[in-house]
């Protein structure tokens, strides 16, 4: 898992953490059942306050991304069908974005791309 914190960002630090962990769960970098570091460990590693990591984990738990099992630790929660779909859509979107970038470099218009898609689909 990767977390990079910017102190100059307008986003509060807890939000930076939740966003980055969510993204990695959606992308499948961290998978269901994987154990996350404790709030204290994470705070120490990132050199931020415990209450900040606690708030980040609370948000993630509220949104169903992680699950806290008392006495055992914090784990990536099983993802719902909706979430999985969203996750896959996100992958397709990313790939399409790549195609668009590449096409723009070659001056290929949106219509041309759509036509190509229609032929291939």
């Amino acid at each position: 898992m990767k977390i990079v914190i910017s102190n100059s960002s307008k986003e509060p630090i807890y939000e930076q953490i939740t966003m980055q962990i969510k993204e990695q769960i959606i992308k499948g970098v961290v998978i269901e059942g994987e154990m996350l570091p404790s709030i204290r460990k994470l705070a120490k590693e990132l050199q931020i306050s415990v209450i900040t990591t606690k708030r980040a984990y609370e948000e993630l738990e509220k949104d169903g991304f992680i699950r806290v099992i008392p006495g055992k630790g914090t784990f990536v929660a099983p993802q719902s069908k909706d979430l999985l779909r969203e996750k896959r859509l996100k992958i397709i979107e990313d790939k399409l974005a790549e195609i668009i970038d590449e096409s723009k470099l070659l001056d290929i218009s949106l219509e041309e791309i759509i036509n190509m898609l229609k032929l291939l689909y």
Binding site: Q47, I51, R55
Partner: peptide, 22 residues
């Protein structure tokens, strides 16, 4: 700025606030 969870501020013998830093 980075380490504290809570901040308590006093001035001239009076408490101004005591709350979560964030």
């Amino acid at each position: 700025e980075k380490t504290a969870d809570y901040i308590t501020l006093i001035n001239k013998g009076k408490l101004l606030f005591s709350d979560e830093k964030d």
